[in-house]
Computed example of a mutant assay.
Amino acid sequence: MTEGNNAFVVGGKSFTAVAINCAAKAGEWIMTKLGNYASLEIKYSEHDLVTEVDKGSERLIRKLIATHFPHHSFLGEEGCEPGPEASAKALEEASDSEYLWIVDPIDGTTNFVHGFPFFCVSIALAYRGEIIVGVVYDPVRDELFVAEKGKGAYVHGRRMQVSEDRTLKEGLIATGLPAEREHALPVNLRGIAELASQVRNLRVAGSAALHLAYVAAGRLSGFWEIGLNSWDMAAGVLLIQESGGIVTDTKGDTYSLGVRNVAASNGYLHDELLAALKKAEAAGS
């Protein structure tokens, strides 16, 4: 990837280079703690976990970003109170920021806790509400997914392209099991029940950010989930958009940082995915 667009460089410092460096350093540190974390806490529900590794990763990323861009704003999962209302409030309070870093220090904490190798670091940068840089780093596979607005998306230094699957029946679709079990989970389960017989297969691997990166890389045909937060999605959204795919909310409206119910695909089967969610009353409120 080349630098030449001043929108991505301030004072000679590339936003993307800083994001990559932060993700790599955090990922390296996380791997030293795999199977060796010291504390496990419950956040919003017994399904919403956090360890000292999540918190340490976020501190590391925050400090590195502040070293390069001390006047930028920062929105990280572990810096917010748990629950959908608190995360929505935190995003609203940061919405007037010119530059806003949006970070999930470990997306897939439950997987990390159990040693299931599907988790990542997700870092995005929004400029006046528009995502301009997205980095998702899988430290287990040492896979770095990188996108800049208008410059494409890359993994292993190669440009990514979404899949060519034209219909749901050809598609491998992913989703999640929301931590919010009273409202979001039942809605998502209705979607699973509707789509299971319509698609080639479903995957529920436990990291929204990696699922989105896989859509961008053509490994998945689509993804949807109810009740996500901005830090789960922001980097992955840009990866998909820069790989030729589409991201909307589950009702088909334009994606914004405030979207919580997301649908993402290669574009070809997007309308079919949305129609299935609507039929099952699985698009959320």
Rank of each mutant, 00 (worst) to 15 (best):
102 I>P: 00
3 E>I: 06
38 A>Q: 15
38 A>M: 12
284 G>D: 07
31 M>I: 13
218 G>K: 05
203 R>Q: 09
234 A>R: 04
65 I>P: 00
164 E>C: 14
272 E>L: 09
190 R>E: 07
267 G>V: 06
214 Y>M: 13
262 V>A: 01
39 S>N: 13
52 E>P: 01
119 F>G: 11
251 K>Q: 08
33 K>Y: 01
79 G>I: 04
172 L>G: 14
145 F>G: 06
160 M>K: 11
237 V>K: 00
21 N>M: 06
165 D>L: 13
202 L>S: 05
209 A>W: 02
261 N>I: 14
75 L>S: 04
49 L>R: 03
55 K>N: 06
276 A>H: 03
179 A>N: 02
231 W>P: 08
129 G>W: 11
142 D>Y: 03
63 K>Y: 02
129 G>K: 07
264 A>Y: 08
72 H>L: 04
149 K>D: 01
246 I>P: 00
246 I>M: 02
250 T>N: 02
151 K>H: 09
12 G>F: 00
226 I>W: 00
138 D>R: 09
278 K>G: 12
148 E>C: 08
252 G>I: 13
168 L>D: 11
83 G>D: 08
213 A>S: 05
56 G>C: 04
216 A>G: 12
255 Y>D: 01
157 G>P: 11
186 P>W: 00
258 G>H: 09
273 L>M: 14
220 L>V: 14
26 A>F: 11
151 K>S: 07
138 D>M: 08
47 H>E: 09
75 L>Y: 03
146 V>C: 05
179 A>C: 04
261 N>G: 12
233 M>G: 02
232 D>A: 11
107 D>C: 02
135 V>F: 00
26 A>I: 12
43 K>C: 09
98 E>Q: 10
25 K>R: 10
281 E>W: 04
243 S>Q: 02
207 S>R: 07
30 I>Y: 01
167 T>K: 15
170 E>H: 11
96 D>E: 13
136 V>S: 04
270 H>T: 12
228 L>V: 15
60 L>C: 05
206 G>N: 04
14 S>A: 03
102 I>K: 00
172 L>V: 15
220 L>P: 15
274 L>C: 07
44 Y>R: 12
158 R>G: 13
27 G>S: 06
29 W>F: 11
190 R>T: 10
203 R>I: 05
156 H>G: 12
204 V>L: 05
71 H>C: 07
267 G>E: 02
23 A>V: 08
111 N>H: 09
67 T>I: 03
126 A>S: 08
207 S>M: 08
188 N>H: 02
202 L>M: 07
283 A>C: 14
285 S>G: 15
119 F>A: 12
256 S>I: 15
86 A>H: 10
248 T>F: 10
245 G>C: 05
229 N>M: 11
269 L>M: 15
111 N>M: 07
84 P>H: 05
172 L>F: 08
211 H>F: 01
231 W>S: 05
221 S>K: 12
285 S>T: 15
183 H>S: 14
69 F>Q: 08
130 E>R: 14
50 V>Q: 06
106 I>N: 03
71 H>V: 09
232 D>G: 10
129 G>R: 09
162 V>R: 12
7 A>R: 15
34 L>H: 10
85 E>R: 15
261 N>P: 11
58 E>Q: 08
245 G>K: 01
2 T>C: 07
217 A>I: 04
211 H>P: 04
275 A>C: 10
40 L>Q: 12
265 S>Q: 03
66 A>Q: 08
143 E>P: 02
